Every structure is written in C-alpha cells, then in structure tokens.
Amino acid sequence: MGIPITRSGKDIQHGVKTKVDLKFSQNAGFNEVLSEVAPFLGDHRWTLVYGLQALVGDLGDIMHLWEVEVFADIGAGLNAAFSDPELAESLARLPEFMNNETQQILVETPYSP
C-alpha cells in the first residue's frame, strides 16, 4: 500500500493518471464520450480531480487525474465500464478519436505538499 494522498482532509490511497493522444481535430467527439465515462466511473468510486487539455503546444494531448481510495476499485471500475452495454457503445467510439492512451497508477511522493 502506498503513501496516502490527502485531498480535502480525506486520505486517498491511489491515483490514476491517463494520458491520451487524440487524432487531429477530434477533441469534440472525445469530450462527448468522456462526458458519459466520467460520471459512470464516479458511480464506481473514481473521482475525477482534473481533466486537462493543452492550450498551447500539442492540442491533442489530454490528461486526467483520478482519485481512487481503494486499490481494488481501480480494476472494478474499469471492469464495470467495459461490461456495461450502454457505455460499451460510447467506448467503442474511442478509437475514432484516439491514437493512444496510457494509464499509470500513482502514489504520493514524500515531498508532495
């Protein structure tokens, strides 16, 4: 178990970072899908802390930082998302918009405020 991440007085044990490389000019479609995915994951104990996109530079870079209190909820949330028939329709559209996505499970550094 990692060092707890504390936010708003609550200990969060894990963070998940996703980095997405979008195809040229596909932000709108990706944003539409994620507007369905984010609340779904929220119902499965993932909290979206930041969803950020580039203002300058590579405009196809998207980054999400999620808080997940219990490690098992990382896999459980992803399994629920890919098992839900309604959400599956939206998730099936993602390859239209993305070149690549990477995910990392994070813990707080010792020097973090």
Rank of each mutant, 00 (worst) to 15 (best):
Ser25Cys: 10
Ser25Lys: 13
Ser25Val: 03
Ser25Tyr: 08
Ser25Phe: 14
Ser25Arg: 11
Gln26Leu: 03
Gln26Asp: 01
Gln26Ala: 10
Asn27His: 14
Ala28Val: 13
Ala28Pro: 00
Ala28Cys: 01
Gly29His: 07
Gly29Cys: 07
Gly29Ile: 06
Gly29Asp: 12
Gly29Thr: 10
Gly29Pro: 10
Phe30Tyr: 15
Asn31Phe: 07
Asn31Leu: 12
Glu32Met: 06
Glu32Ser: 12
Glu32Phe: 04
Val33Asn: 05
Val33Met: 03
Val33Tyr: 03
Leu34Ala: 02
Leu34Val: 03
Leu34Tyr: 13
Leu34Gly: 00
Leu34Trp: 15
Ser35Leu: 01
Glu36Cys: 01
Glu36Phe: 03
Glu36Asn: 09
Glu36Gly: 01
Val37Lys: 03
Val37Arg: 01
Ala38Leu: 11
Ala38His: 13
Ala38Trp: 05
Ala38Cys: 06
Pro39Gly: 07
Pro39Tyr: 10
Phe40Trp: 08
Phe40His: 10
Phe40Ile: 09
Phe40Ser: 09
Leu41Ser: 09
Leu41Glu: 05
Leu41Ala: 07
Leu41His: 11
Leu41Ile: 12
Gly42Asn: 10
Gly42Thr: 08
Gly42Asp: 06
Gly42Tyr: 05
Gly42Phe: 04
Gly42Ser: 10
Gly42Glu: 11
Gly42Gln: 12
Asp43Arg: 14
Asp43Val: 00
Asp43Phe: 00
Asp43Gly: 15
Asp43Met: 11
His44Leu: 08
His44Gly: 04
Arg45Gln: 14
Arg45Leu: 03
Arg45Phe: 04
Trp46Pro: 04
Trp46His: 05
Trp46Val: 01
Trp46Arg: 09
Thr47Ile: 03
Thr47Gly: 00
Thr47Tyr: 02
Leu48Asp: 02
Leu48Glu: 06
Val49Gln: 10
Val49Asn: 06
Val49Lys: 10
Val49Leu: 11
Tyr50Pro: 00
Tyr50Leu: 05
Tyr50Trp: 03
Gly51Leu: 05
Gly51Phe: 06
Gly51Asp: 10
Leu52His: 01
Leu52Lys: 01
Leu52Phe: 00
Leu52Gly: 05
Leu52Thr: 08
Leu52Pro: 00
Gln53Val: 01
Ala54His: 04
Ala54Gly: 14
Ala54Glu: 14
Ala54Gln: 14
Ala54Phe: 04
Ala54Leu: 02
Ala54Lys: 08
Leu55Asp: 11
Leu55Cys: 02
Leu55Glu: 14
Leu55Asn: 09
Val56Arg: 13
Val56Ser: 13
Val56Ala: 11
Val56His: 11
